[in-house]
Every structure is written in structure tokens, then in C-alpha cells.
Design a protein around this nucleic acid. Structure first.
Lengths: 232, 232
DNA sequence: CCACTGAAAACTGTCAACAGTTTCACGGTA
DNA sequence: TACCGTGAAACTGTTGACAGTTTTCAGTGG
């Protein structure tokens, strides 16, 4: 319960070496990491007292961090009982896919009209990398590469608000460890869609790029749904 | 500086009469209200000490509330200097319009397929109310009715995530008092678009509803841009 | 063996105080 | 008059402590 694992070590170091960053923001990052890595499981209670002790800070910064994380949907708090890692229901996960689809489509349409040659090349390279990962049957590499590809789409689009919202949505989706499973099995199908997206962007065809981007994420939702079924 | 104005009174009462709501959440609401009402202007510094004093609480809950509001984009904090009401640039406001357009289009498409007869009737009634406000030249009524109509679109769509994001975006947009001005002048044009949206929804035409919803908000963006020009 | 009671332990919500930084006013100097 | 140190006042970041609530658990009775 009170183990000062190596996982918390980096945060402790950060606290020791801090210069101008507030403890609250360090605790925030650490809590977020713990939640997203699955170190803290969904529905699990977080004792601010224990956490403060483990991180070597007082409860004030921990409460501030928790307050912020609650706002961004990673925690829920119950009066006099503390904060809990939020449980993302299947319905909510599906809604997250809807929103990601919308944003991805938007970004793709934008890229079709403003992507630089370098950006197009980078996207093409990423798709080839994913192809290689698929050929090698390397699920982990595909998973990471897929995340990178989607992040690149949002970043290259040069729309701060869209990228920021997407980031938040992705973190929330990661709360449900189910989302992770959906990507690996259908590598071939998924990467074909990636290629479609890049092709539409390269062709400068906004509507087609938007449709391809949106469809791709919605297909991911469908693939997830097929896997989950009425399972839970 | 230290006036305990009538504006803070309701919050003070809430604090006095509280039963199970945390002080932090009350302070959060009050700060949000102050910011959105324009009582605190963009770029203005918020002294947590003064605020705590005015609300009759200690600095702890104020800091928690500020931490949460920073996360949702209403405040920015600077180390050792405190928190400031965020300044929303024109570029950022335009991006907010993009996102609202996306979400509105999404909601409209959804409504075309799942709106109940009551919901359709309610939307129609709202458009008629707006028409009346326009005829009467009542800008304030039109402004509020317009907000209500858009909120209804998001609520009726039955998509929690979309509604929640929309709400956040709207609050951020309200930070820039420029957005407010855009609605009033073009009542006729704006409400014609509202009618188009409702017609498409009533007809069960998803794509057309989506297009109409998206276009409507983007036209709002265009109207805003025309007004602002290169002004600032 | 199980359900119940009640007191102790643990924890959250809140506050007041301390240390370090920033801001501001004041007085001296060119 | 304008400029620049300098010290006091004000404020933020953080902590430890107190009050009230929840949880735990040993002991009791059925």
C-alpha cells in the first residue's frame, strides 16, 4: 500500500530538482501518468493522504491536481469519500469515438488544403512504417505507430483547439482499457484506410479526406463494437 | 477593492446554508459566474486572497477552484503571480467557431434521425419565438433565444459528450465579449438558417441537417469576421 | 456461525500560519 | 525632473493541524 515504487521515483526526483514548477503541476502529471498507464485502475479510489505521502508533498497540491483532473474527466469525486478513477462505460467510449471521428475528419479536410510537402511525406512514411509493423506482425509497434499517425494528423492540421480537444478525448478513451484492444487485430484494414486518408490529402481533395478520416475512426468504433458485442 | 458587493451575496448565502456541497465547488461556480458575466475582465488578475476574503472562505478552496478553471481554459496561472482571466485572441475565437460548427452539424444530423415529435415542435416554437423577437427588434431576447435554440439542439441530440464539449466551448467563447456582438445585427439571416435546420431535421434528412447546422455556425463566424475585420 | 453495535482508526474538508517571491512606494542621486 | 536602489507591504506556494465524516474491526448477543 505504501510502497515507494520506482514508478513514483521520477516524480520524486522532479520534486527534489524543481526550480520554478509548482508541486501541483508535478503531482498533476504524475497522477495523470498513473491513471493512463493503468497503474491506478478504473473505479479505484485514490487516497490523497497516501499519494501525498508517497510523493513527499502535502495534501494541498494533491487536492489541486485532483481538482484539475476531475474537470478534465479522468477522476470523479464523492463528498467526504475522496476521488476515484473514473469508470468509462461502453456507451461513453462509443461517444468518444464519435467525437474523435468528427475531429479527425475536420483535420483531414484541413490538411488536404494546407498540408506542406514535408507533412505529406511524413504521413506517407508513417503509413509505410505501419505497413512494416503489420508485415512483421508487431502489434505493439503498430499500436504506437497508429497513435503517432493520428496525432500527426491533428498536429499538422494547425488547429490548436481541435488538437487540444482531441488530446483530451484520447486520454479519456485510454481510461477504458478496452479501446486498446481494438487496434491490433485489424491492422490490414486499418492501414488501408490510413493510406486512403493520405491519398485524399495528397490529392488536395478536402471533402474526400474528411470523409476518409471520419470513416476511419467510425470503422474503429465498429471494430470495437464487434469485439465487445453485448459483452459488458 | 474589498467591497462585499451584492453580486457575491448569493455565494455567501450558499456558503452559509450549505449542507453537503464542498466550498470548492461553490467557489468554482461563483468564479465561473464572475468571469462569464464580465465582472472580471479578460486579462485581469484574480487575487485569491481577496477572493477568499470576499467569499468568507480560506484560500484552499479558492486554489482548488482556480486549478479546475485553469484546466477548462477560463484561467491561466503564472508562477508566483497568481491566476488571470484568460485572454481569448481573435484567432482562438475563430477556432472556437470551427469546433462549434462541427458539433452543431453533428447534433443536427443526429436529430434528423432520432428527434421526437415533441422535440421537433419545441424547436419550431423556438424559431417562431426568435422570429417574434426579431420582429419586435428585441436584440436581448433574440440573443437569449438564440443561445437556447443552440443549447436545445445539443441537448436533444442525446449525445452527452458532444453536449459537454459544446458547453465548454461556449463558455470559452463568452470570454471574448466580441462574440456576443455578432448575433444581434443579422437576426433575419440567422433565423432563416435556424428555420432551414429545423426543416431538414423535420424532413429526417441527416446530411442536409448536418450541412445546415455546420453552415449556420460558420456563417456566424463569417459575420463576426466581417464585423471585426482586421480591427484587432 | 452470523448479524449488530459502538468505539477507534483513517480519511476528507477546511483553515491558519510560515517561507519565499513579487509588487510598490519612498527617498536619494544625477 | 527622471532614474534607480532599497526596504516594507502584499501575495503566492506549501505545510501542518483541527473538526467532522466514513470506514474498520473487535466484541456482544442471538
Amino acid at each position: 500500500m505504501s510502497k515507494v515504487g520506482s514508478s513514483a521515483m521520477s516524480a520524486s526526483e522532479a520534486i527534489a530538482q524543481r526550480r520554478s514548477e509548482s508541486l501541483a503541476s508535478i503531482v498533476l502529471r504524475e497522477m495523470e501518468r498513473m491513471i493512463l498507464s493503468g497503474e491506478l485502475k478504473a473505479g479505484e479510489r485514490i487516497s490523497e493522504q497516501n499519494l501525498a505521502l508517497r510523493l513527499g508533498v502535502s495534501r494541498g497540491p494533491v487536492r489541486e491536481a485532483a481538482s484539475a483532473l476531475e474537470r478534465s474527466g479522468l477522476l470523479t469525486s464523492v463528498a467526504n469519500r475522496g476521488v476515484f478513477v473514473r469508470h468509462v462505460s461502453t456507451e461513453e467510449l462509443l461517444e468518444l469515438y464519435d467525437m474523435r471521428a468528427l475531429l479527425t475528419g475536420f483535420a483531414c479536410a484541413r490538411l488536404a488544403e494546407r498540408a506542406t510537402a514535408e507533412q505529406k511525406a511524413a504521413l506517407r512514411a508513417m503509413v509505410e512504417g505501419l505497413e512494416a509493423a503489420h508485415a512483421a506482425g508487431d502489434g505493439a509497434a503498430y499500436y504506437q505507430g497508429n497513435l503517432d499517425f493520428h496525432e500527426a494528423l491533428m498536429t499538422f492540421a494547425g488547429h490548436d483547439k481541435a488538437a487540444r480537444i482531441y488530446e483530451t478525448l484520447l486520454k479519456e478513451a485510454h481510461l477504458s482499457r478496452r479501446g486498446v484492444l481494438a487496434a491490433a487485430p485489424m491492422m490490414q484494414e486499418s492501414n488501408t484506410e490510413h493510406a486512403d486518408i493520405v491519398a485524399a490529402i495528397a490529392a488536395g481533395d478536402g471533402p474526400r479526406a474528411r470523409e476518409a478520416g471520419e470513416r476511419h475512426v467510425l470503422n474503429g468504433k465498429r471494430r470495437l463494437l464487434a469485439k465487445v458485442g453485448g459483452g459488458d
